[in-house]
Design a protein around this nucleic acid. Sequence first.
RNA 1: GGUGACGUGGCCGAGUGGUCAGGCAGAGGCCUGCAAAGCCUCCUACGGCGGUUCGAAUCCGCCCGUCACCUCCA
Length: 516
Amino acid sequence: MPSPTFRLYNTLTHETEPVEPIEEEHLRFYSCGPTVYMYAHIGNFRSFLTADLIRRTAEAIGWDVTNVSNITDVGHLTQDDLVDPGGEDKMQRALEREGERFANIYDLARHYTEAFLEDWGALNLREPEVRPRATEHVTDQLEAVIELVETGHAYTTEQGVYFSVESVDDYGHLSGNTEAQQLEATDRDVVEDPEKHDPRDFALWKHDPDHLMHWHSPWGWGYPGWHIECSVMGMQYLGDRFDLHTGGEDLIFPHHECEIAQNQSLAGHPVVNYWVHTRFLQVEGEKMSKSTGNFYTVRDLIAPGPNDKHVPDSVREQGGIDPLALRYTLMQGQYRKPFNFTLDALHTAARHVRRYQDAAERVEEALEADAAGPDHLGDRLGAIHERTLEAMCDDLNTPAATAAALEGVKAIEQTDRLSGDAARSARNWLDRTNALLGIVESEHDAEPATDDGSQDGLSAGHLSSSINTLLEDREAARTEGEYARADAIRDTLEALGIEVMDTPDGTEWRRTIEVG
RNA sequence: GGUGACGUGGCCGAGUGGUCAGGCAGAGGCCUGCAAAGCCUCCUACGGCGGUUCGAAUCCGCCCGUCACCUCCA
């Protein structure tokens, strides 16, 4: 069976195009990572998930993948033009906000980097081959800036080094921001360097010996501009021609526009063929913001502390939601379309993820029993996987892919008695579905740590045993026909967040997934 | 003002010319001591107005609306 053609929307051409790797069957791409000055929120991870799904789709059609995803651990000015020696950047602001928590800016960056990697694993994102840090590549960035000055693409002023936009041909092509007047016409609250040649020119290096992080350069102590790090690290690890570059839609301009200009100037030719951008998500119909109360970090939802009052009760009271459910929720919208993240969708996703897990459990049991009988599932699940993969190859159509995959779960549920052969087909399908979508079971062992300790008291031994006592009492009552007492015990369990299911094989229980 | 994306049933969300998306919620049924879970059945929509066509959610034009970016942001 030939693999479907992998197609992605290319911001550069405004078209959905077949992805044709430079090296045959080897996709090499760069993903813009986070600036580590706070816990990552669910919107950040919508973008990182896109990169993960590109990787998984490419692997599913048999390609090799090399992915580079950076950690930006250098603070950059909140306004790129602002060359005020006392100017703050977002990492510096974070340090001032949390000064008692961290001894210095490096500790802060380290803490949020570790938290980010934990969230990454919890959401079942695959590790990039290379995860470079900006602070470890400042020398490389300096060399690139020097080269740009030497080749006439950059110039120095009293306050720093600027890239000369005029020195490249098609600046603005990616974003459509082609007119210098447009940039000036925009109402911007910006302090400009009067020595800048062109309002579009952007900083490559800032002279600022007082900055919290500073390095020595030919222009004195200072620190690099934001855009240069991705150009340098991308080309260092992927060469001066690679396939694809991902990021959030906000990075189209200025970040990626500037990166293209730098790349072109350093390499002498275009470096990246496809640019893929993930749209911002909204939460409960509004732009996510702390003031609206709809701002969720990943750990707010998967491991809330008991005192995280901004976390919705329905999430906090059950000790956080399955991280795979968060992943599943984010996949209910295609990366390129507006997506409204709702708690309702999150709880629905939790149920769906559990259906996968239940199906996987059933399959495990059937594998152990290994009953004789025909394989009713192999062909059906094979066809379902085809459709799932086709949907993913169609510009990462995750809603269609998850819908197709859910039919596979249904097929397993519908089968009354799973033969050993059917179970092997089902196991194979679950594995392939998990490899492609990552929603069945986590590939990471590490549990995410929480700041305030887990609220998951139900997994604690003493509570678990009291549940068992209640279940035994109820079973006894049922055997004796005392249904009123049995139902009262069931109500008690429900109040504890336990739902009880009487099956032909005995009574089962699990934690309730609350709705809304 | 510039640029781009989008508008599908109560809700979310697939679908680029003619035949089923799927899910959630809701209704009925099977199962159950009663439930729960699961299964089966039902609920049939494409912002507005024109146009092309035998036929349009789908193509074209105009209009209305939503969202985003335009040097903080994934």
